[in-house]
Design a protein around this nucleic acid. Structure first.
Lengths: 206, 206, 206, 206
DNA sequence: CATGAATGAGATTTCATTCAT
DNA sequence: CATGAATGAAATCTCATTCAT
């Protein structure tokens, strides 16, 4: 099977090269303003080759999104499933997400654009599979909050809402990060997120 | 002058009708996937008429975004400039925003898509004027936080970051709102936002 | 009939104003690149008014061309019908044409574009009537040459060809005139035309 | 290199086919009244193919004009640079031009429309490069006349004007040629041109 | 498999013409 | 009559997709 495997390895390498080119273009210009010819150019393949490896433009995009969300989901789920208290797990989650954002902004933009922002800032219909992966993360967050509330670690707020709230804050600095990448470190972003989310902003008793 | 005024009134009415049609379509499908023909159809005008009232597609979009952001900016600035302590002003801000979101989801989607999400989820180049209006709101928030910190109402965190954080949370429930509009009231959304942002989620001392 | 006459006078004045605006635009930009709205603007009328006075754009153009060619034809025919020998008549013709060219370049451009250049540099289908007027001039020239040859004033060359040749030379300086209107006087142009056409350029016997 | 060459050869063949179709249409109907769809139809390609080979409609037109003027310039310059006296060179020039006109009327129409008639009958902005080529011919003519005058072969008239005058006559029969192609031979046209230009039309001393 | 020329549907935009006021 | 808003056909141009080499 050496032959098949070599072929298959090549195929996968080409696939990755194409996706890398596509990531850069899609993350900067969006789906509609990126043409297949551009992607092909950038990846140094002919358009026909893109169509050999992906059904059509949507499929290529879906594959890219799936890769992106999968990468995030893997790292974030790992953080959420690590040892420790609910608070420790969430802190790990926040740190991981900040790290992912800072280390690979294009991926972050795609992730954000396809998850939190997806229903609001209208984009190309996001993939079922990608959506499901993100929901898995959201559900895990919700469970953690529910458990934490039961153990009286967190205030009594609908856990689903806490999960969305955490997403909101942990995404909040992404626009600033995109604009001035050098002004942000992952550590700072994580620290900020934790302080605002877990601490109290207001110093007076409510 | 009846004649001039009547003509002009009609013109403005048509302009509004076209913008209304455009708002619905753009907010659901985005700039690129909405065609001028569709907008014309929906507004019950001929394409040519759109071009009489707007230079081109971009101009129509810009006008819509400007209207949208202006509407939000006016309401939010009013809230931020009302009487009261810094906390009260911010609470008013949160309530106003929640109210705007719940009462007019398409506007909210456009607002969100063109402000917070703009740098991340790549959209059509947003208007200078609209951007400036949003920055005005952000700056006002920042000032409020700065003043509040000086008066020891808020924790010592860079005020700009607090402003971004507040934006993050107050936008956090919009995706959920878009998906199930009937499950959310403005009051609940505002209450949630305040609780998470001002209160402490974690009950243990950090 | 005072009333009808006043109306009619007004109507004719408006007609002339519109044609004046149209002349400038058509002569500089050509038929296709001049819009009815532009002509209306320039003439300070509404588009509707243009359509009250002219069937459609073609008709307006035809009317303009007819006016232009009529003006030329009148002056040129007068020159050709004046007293004198064939040579004197032709000299008068050349002087008149040079004078018309120099004094009103836009008219000259339209005249040239619709007569000599018409079959070659493709323009909008020229009017039958205008064509007929020009042919009248050509025919008159031909007769003059024929008579002149009979009286042994001119070389024996097909008179039609002499007429075309004269047209060729008398038009030859128009491009230069259009480019640098101040470098040419009617007298010089006429003198040049006569020298080349009637005299001999070559000094050796053929 | 067979592969590269074959592709490129095909490409050039298609380019020529498109230009041929365009030449026919442009020379008969002009730039504005010829649509890309028509050219595509006539050339039996899809519109998209035209845009693969030419930036846009203007570029296609420019390419055609450049080809046309280049072809003429090459032949005419060759005639002007051949051996012989100034008179012989000019005679060769006249013969060559007549031959080009008679043998390929569409090319002649485009050449005339873009050179002599260009400033008068308003056309689409003519190409710098094409203009420069024509000026080269004009300059060469001027030099020849200047030299000839010095050698007392020609009358003392500004050489530039003699050049324009020769152009005027040598173009003079083109309209007639276009209308009745079968009535003209290149030899006759050339003979006529020479007789009128070099000889004297008038038999009396001026 | 890889290639990239060819396709043609569809989008944006212009403008001659009409017609209600 | 004058007006100019409204119309919609037609033109230019782009780009996802196919397919012969």
């Amino acid at each position: 099977m050496g032959k098949v495997t070599r072929r298959e390895r090549e195929r996968q390498r080409h696939r990755r090269e194409i996706l890398a080119a596509a990531q850069d273009l899609f993350s900067r210009k969006g789906f509609d303003r990126t043409s297949m010819a551009e992607i092909a150019d950038r990846a140094e393949f002919a358009v026909g080759t893109l169509y050999k490896l992906f059904e059509d433009k949507q499929a290529l995009y879906r594959a890219l999104i799936l890769d992106t969300v999968r990468e995030f989901e893997a790292a974030l789920s790992a953080a959420l499933n690590a040892r420790g208290s609910e608070i420790e797990k969430l802190e790990r989650y926040i740190e991981t997400k900040a790290d992912l954002f800072v280390r690979h902004i294009p991926t972050a933009r795609l992730y954000f654009g396809q998850t939190a922002a997806a229903q609001c800032a209208p984009t190309v219909g996001l993939d079922r599979a990608a959506r499901a992966l993100y929901e898995k993360v959201l559900d895990r967050l919700e469970s953690l909050f529910r458990a934490g509330i039961r153990r009286m670690l967190f205030v009594e707020v609908e856990p689903k809402m806490l999960a969305l709230g955490l997403e909101g804050i942990s995404n909040a600095f992404l626009p600033a990060l995109v604009e001035r990448p050098d002004d942000f470190s992952a550590d700072e972003m994580a620290a900020l997120t934790k302080k605002i989310f877990f601490g109290r902003v207001s110093l007076k008793a409510e």
